Amino acid sequence: MRIKAQHYAIVAVDVEKFGTRDNPTAFLLRKQLYSLVETALDDAGIDRSAAPDPADRGDGFFQLLPGDVDKLDLTGPFVALLHNALRDHAATSNAPGALRIRVVLHSGDVGWDGRGWVGEELNTACRLLDIEPLRTTLAQAGRAGLALAVTEDWYRRVVCHGTAEVEREAFREVPFDAKEIRGASAWIRVPGYDVPPGIPPMRRAERPEPTGPAPASPAAPGGAAGAPGGKAGTSGGLTVGDVGQFVHGDQYVKGGLTIRMPRRGEGGQ
């Protein structure tokens, strides 16, 4: 039987250093995690009445919400309320009982096969929970109760429009490479920080580029291959009208280029 998928918003959470806790502490943290996330969703005005039950992952869980949920409410008020609740928890807990979490927001088609939830987008959300930049920034963000990561698609649809609720300027882009995912990007934010600690600005050369061979440019009359409209200059140089774009280190150069060719007797043997 074909599995019928539906579009959901995906909220995935994972407890930092969960495997280091003894069993009684782990039981308590799991109970507190569910309670804090569900309360934050309710207080943010997000209706869970039509949502499936959360799906447990041992050291965390994911919650599927109907696809028409307000994603601004999830990205802004929900994250803020959850962060505040985690900070309140930290004020009364010792180190073994610390509850700090990684949070991921994504959306896409997910189906129920009678035993569990299945879908590429769900895999993506769970992969994103475990990327090293998200772990690193939470470890270095001592004042924070959580670190948030959103997929490139979520960032483009929700965050980049710059509404006050989501604090677009506080997000930083990071590479998203995990198992079958290669060359993607994600965006990370830590509440209470202007920029996520431990994440340097992503250089342009590190960002994913379209793959596939670049079209070859034919040689122009009187010029060189790959140099449309090239012509010999009167000073012994070659003027290239438009070389497109090339990279040198971190520098990108685009536009016209003049190459000076040495005359006989200049710099020769």
Score class of each variant (00 low, 15 high):
137 T>Y: 00
53 D>T: 11
128 L>T: 08
218 P>V: 15
184 A>I: 03
86 L>K: 04
161 H>I: 10
87 R>D: 02
268 G>L: 13
132 E>T: 14
259 I>W: 08
122 L>F: 02
246 F>V: 15
214 A>E: 14
17 K>S: 12
125 A>P: 01
110 V>F: 02
50 A>C: 02
203 R>S: 07
250 D>E: 14
210 P>S: 12
145 G>I: 07
101 I>C: 02
254 K>H: 10
218 P>S: 15
41 L>T: 12
47 D>E: 12
127 R>Q: 06
102 R>M: 08
10 I>S: 01
235 S>K: 10
67 G>Q: 12
83 H>S: 12
205 A>D: 09
81 L>I: 13
8 Y>R: 10
211 T>F: 03
71 K>E: 11
31 K>R: 15
151 T>G: 02
155 Y>N: 13
87 R>V: 11
261 M>W: 07
218 P>D: 13
242 D>T: 11
114 G>K: 10
105 L>S: 06
37 V>K: 03
65 L>W: 06
110 V>Y: 01
34 Y>G: 04
1 M>N: 09
142 G>F: 03
210 P>T: 13
105 L>W: 04
231 K>C: 04
256 G>P: 10
235 S>F: 05
22 D>A: 09
147 A>K: 09
93 S>M: 06
258 T>E: 12
131 I>W: 00
216 A>E: 13
176 F>V: 12
253 V>T: 15
78 F>E: 07
120 E>C: 01
134 L>N: 06
48 R>P: 00
70 D>C: 08
141 A>P: 05
153 D>A: 10
92 T>I: 10
164 A>T: 10
76 G>S: 09
199 I>D: 01
4 K>H: 11
112 W>A: 12
100 R>W: 08
77 P>I: 15
27 F>L: 13
129 L>N: 00
83 H>M: 03
164 A>G: 05
120 E>K: 13
189 R>Y: 02
56 D>L: 07
157 R>S: 09
94 N>Q: 09
117 W>L: 08
255 G>H: 09
11 V>T: 15
240 V>D: 02
150 V>G: 01
244 G>Q: 06
